[in-house]
Each structure stands twice: as structure tokens, then as C-alpha cells.
Measured scan of single mutants.
Amino acid sequence: TTVKVNGTKYKFDTPEEAQKFAKKAADKYNLKVVVDGDDLRVE
């Protein structure tokens, strides 16, 4: 599972880890998590 934040992709072994990271990033930058198929985007 990958998470894309500000054009940078981060790869995670499990969707749970990816979800946690995406949520933290979204909170930090005051953005929202967008599900894109198997991957997540923070925008």
C-alpha cells in the first residue's frame, strides 16, 4: 500500500500502517485522506 503526500510516495507493508500514517499526515497538514484504489492520497 502506498500513501502519497505532497507528491512523495511512502510504501507500507500493511494497509493499517498506511492508514495510520495517512491520518497523521492529514491531521498535520490539515488535509484529508483520499482512497485511490488500493492506495491512499493525502490532499
Rank of each mutant, 00 (worst) to 15 (best):
T1L: 09
T1K: 09
T2M: 08
T2E: 05
V3W: 00
V3E: 00
K4A: 10
K4N: 12
K4M: 15
K4Q: 14
V5L: 14
N6R: 10
N6L: 14
N6E: 05
N6A: 09
N6M: 13
N6F: 15
N6I: 05
N6P: 01
G7K: 08
G7Q: 06
T8W: 12
K9N: 11
K9C: 15
K9I: 15
K9P: 09
K9V: 15
K11A: 08
F12G: 00
D13Y: 06
T14R: 03
T14I: 04
P15Y: 15
P15M: 14
E16M: 08
E16T: 07
E16W: 07
E16A: 10
E16K: 06
E16P: 01
E16L: 09
E17R: 05
E17H: 05
E17T: 04
E17D: 09
A18G: 03
Q19K: 11
Q19I: 14
K20A: 14
K20D: 14
K20C: 14
F21V: 02
F21T: 02
F21H: 02
F21K: 01
A22T: 00
A22R: 01
A22I: 04
K23R: 10
K23A: 10
K24D: 14
K24T: 11
K24L: 13
K24G: 09
K24I: 12
K24E: 14
A25K: 09
A25D: 02
A26M: 04
A26G: 04
D27T: 08
D27R: 11
Y29L: 13
Y29C: 07
Y29E: 06
N30G: 15
N30A: 07
N30K: 11
L31V: 11
L31K: 06
K32L: 13
K32V: 15
K32R: 09
K32P: 07
K32S: 13
K32N: 10
V33C: 06
V34G: 03
V34R: 07
V34Y: 10
V35P: 09
D36G: 04
D36M: 07
G37K: 04
D38P: 11
D38N: 13
D38T: 13
D38F: 11
D39G: 14
D39Y: 12
D39C: 15
D39N: 11
L40V: 06
L40Y: 11
L40S: 02
R41T: 09
R41V: 15
R41F: 07
R41A: 08
R41I: 15
V42M: 06
V42G: 02
V42P: 02
V42K: 02
E43C: 13
E43R: 06
